[in-house]
Design a protein around this nucleic acid. Structure first.
Lengths: 152, 152
DNA sequence: CCATCACGCACTAATTAAAGTTACATGAAA
DNA sequence: TTTCATGTAACTTTAATTAGTGCGTGATGG
């Protein structure tokens, strides 16, 4: 099954925005992501509704991060993009009246819910500031000659 | 994204097989699963290669469980069906040369690997025998009047 | 030894989720 | 008032999975 890359994508966008310091347009962000401006708007729309980013129309407009990076956790972002499934497996929903199926599903569900809780707990504790720090550490580790690693 | 139901499905099949005590054909199992015989064969093919089930052609042929139920763990089955992804999220593989993307991916990967390890550890400890017990407990909890809950 | 049964495999069709595209409305700035 | 940028909706394209069909192979039993 295909894995959802929305969380990864939105984090990528957010760090680029934060790094810029001034409003970035959907088009600029799309170029960095090698995707389409409308896709960027769709991704960020949920974050705007959640108050994590701000968008401005017209000349000089674009997207900005609305809070301090340390005040935004991965869990905030996860919720803002609509809490997509974390676990790749689910139950067959055919034959839910079969007791065998019910026993199987109950056993699997318990494990899956536990793993989800673990992930969410970790997401609560990781902030955008921490990700930005990791990025800057990687940048510092680079030879000085080639420090334009941020595309776009 | 769509959730993979192969593990759930194959467990359903295995418990039906175990419950029957004699060889079940793909067609019988498919009827219980409300699916196609070929789907059943595909699901069980990996388990046969792993030695978990046995298949026999011709008259009186069909599928049987090859080991004691207590000697088959969910992890055995998970591996036999090809270790499908447990986590529904992945990395965008565009722009892997971007340090921002790398930092994001590294942070997410760590969490995902931890959740996967948790799930696998649980799968190691759950046997088919345990699932069968849970099924029989559910059966016993039913009013005596309606004890044909196993379809097919 | 031939009819039947059941699995094995390769190929095709159908479904579906995600992404991209286009078009146009809205509002802000120069 | 022209240009720029977001907001949203509708539509198309694309990619991947899954289901299904047909035929080959081997085993059974009359």
């Amino acid at each position: 099954m295909k894995r959802d890359s929305r969380l990864s994508g939105v984090l990528h966008i957010l760090l680029h925005m934060a790094d810029a310091g001034e409003p970035r347009t959907s088009e600029q962000l799309a170029k960095a992501m090698r995707t389409n401006p409308v896709v960027v708007r769709r991704l960020l729309g949920g974050l705007r509704d959640a108050g994590l980013v701000h968008s401005e129309k017209g000349h000089g407009g674009g997207w900005t991060v609305a809070r301090n990076l340390a005040a935004i956790s991965l869990a905030d972002i996860y919720r803002a993009i609509g809490r997509p499934a974390l676990i790749a497996m689910g139950n067959r929903d055919d034959a839910p009246d079969c007791l065998v199926e019910q026993a199987v599903n109950a056993a699997l569900e318990a494990s899956f819910r536990e793993a989800e809780a673990l992930l969410l707990a970790r997401f609560e504790r990781v902030t955008l500031a921490a990700l930005a720090d990791e990025f800057h550490a990687r940048l510092a580790a680079l030879p000085t000659a080639c420090k334009d690693p941020v595309h776009g």
